[in-house]
């Protein structure tokens, strides 16, 4: 069997008494696009942050190309992070610098590119997400929600990363803009030949971008399979989630008055 690009083995993470990830296993092959669905607060973001080293898992191992990266520090960690691109849920654009500097941040800061070249590169990448060079001169505060996501996407792909993470790429967008972002993600990932991991609770988005869909529940991946099979998963948890039913095995901790 071929070696997975990214592999999580028995990853556990708890905050105080709350167990968020409970021995999570996940393999993603090179060039594959995997979408992990799951309710709010089930630990989807925690999973991504453990891989990136923003959170330290309590137990378990994480591998990229078979190489363990779980406990890398300092320069080793930075070197590894250059192979990743991440689209944050709220964009997480740096609001003290202009849009083009945001897009070119990885190029300037991590690769030491000259300002003039970086500006040209930033304009090219902005064009790839459907934004004109004039947007580059704006401040992030002047952007609309859809534009913020596009700029954040541009920043994530600017350094040609091998692995791309998308954290709720369509949250807070209208359905049309959400579809535009989904298409951009599919195009850009294919264009880069990158491996992609998306977390979302938007089923339309999941169906559009996924080769395989997995569901995170109770700190584990309870089902994973080809995107086309999601309707016939035979898993009551998955069925309840994708049809958005309040009744089912997943009980929401909502107090009824």
């Amino acid at each position: 069997m071929a070696q997975p690009k990214l592999s999580l083995r028995g990853v556990c993470k708890r905050f105080g008494r709350k167990v968020v990830l409970d021995g999570l296993d996940l393999d993603i092959m090179a060039g594959e696009s995997v979408v992990i669905i799951g309710g709010s607060g089930t630990g989807k973001s925690v999973m991504l942050k453990c891989v990136l080293g923003l959170l330290q898992p309590d137990a378990g191992d994480i591998f990229v190309d078979g190489e363990e990266i779980t406990r890398l520090k300092g320069h080793e960690r930075e070197k590894m992070l250059r192979r990743f691109g991440m689209l944050f849920q709220g964009g997480a654009l740096f609001d003290s610098i202009r849009v083009w500097r945001n897009v070119a941040f990885g190029l300037i800061s991590a690769q030491g590119m000259k300002r003039k070249d970086a500006r040209r590169h930033a304009d090219e990448i902005l064009a790839k997400v459907g934004l004109g060079p004039e947007v580059g001169d704006l401040s992030p505060a002047e952007l609309s929600g859809g534009m913020r996501k596009r700029v954040a996407l541009a920043r994530a792909i600017a350094t040609n990363p091998e692995i791309l993470f998308f954290d709720e790429p369509t949250t807070g967008l209208d359905p049309i803009m959400a579809d535009v972002i989904n298409e951009l993600i599919v195009e850009r990932v294919r264009d880069l030949g990158a491996t992609a991991l998306t977390i979302t609770h938007d089923m339309a988005s999941a169906r559009k971008v996924a080769d395989r869909i997995g569901m995170l529940y109770g700190g584990k991946i309870i089902w994973i399979g080809p995107a086309a099979d999601i309707e016939r998963s035979g898993n009551p948890y998955v069925d309840q989630f994708i049809h958005g039913r309040a009744e089912g095995p997943i009980s929401m901790d909502v107090q009824r008055l």
Binding site: K49, L52, G53, L54, E78, K79, L81, R82, F84, G85, M86, F88, Q89, G90, A92, L93, F94, D95, S96, F105, G106, S109, A110, R155
Partner: peptide, 25 residues
């Protein structure tokens, strides 16, 4: 206030993922 806002809007995490040490930057 500035660093706090950067923290809660994930800008500090974004900095780290762009291979930039927030302590230095």
């Amino acid at each position: 206030a500035e660093l706090g806002t950067m923290r809660v809007t994930e800008q500090i995490d974004a900095l780290t993922t762009l291979a930039t040490n927030p302590f230095r930057y």
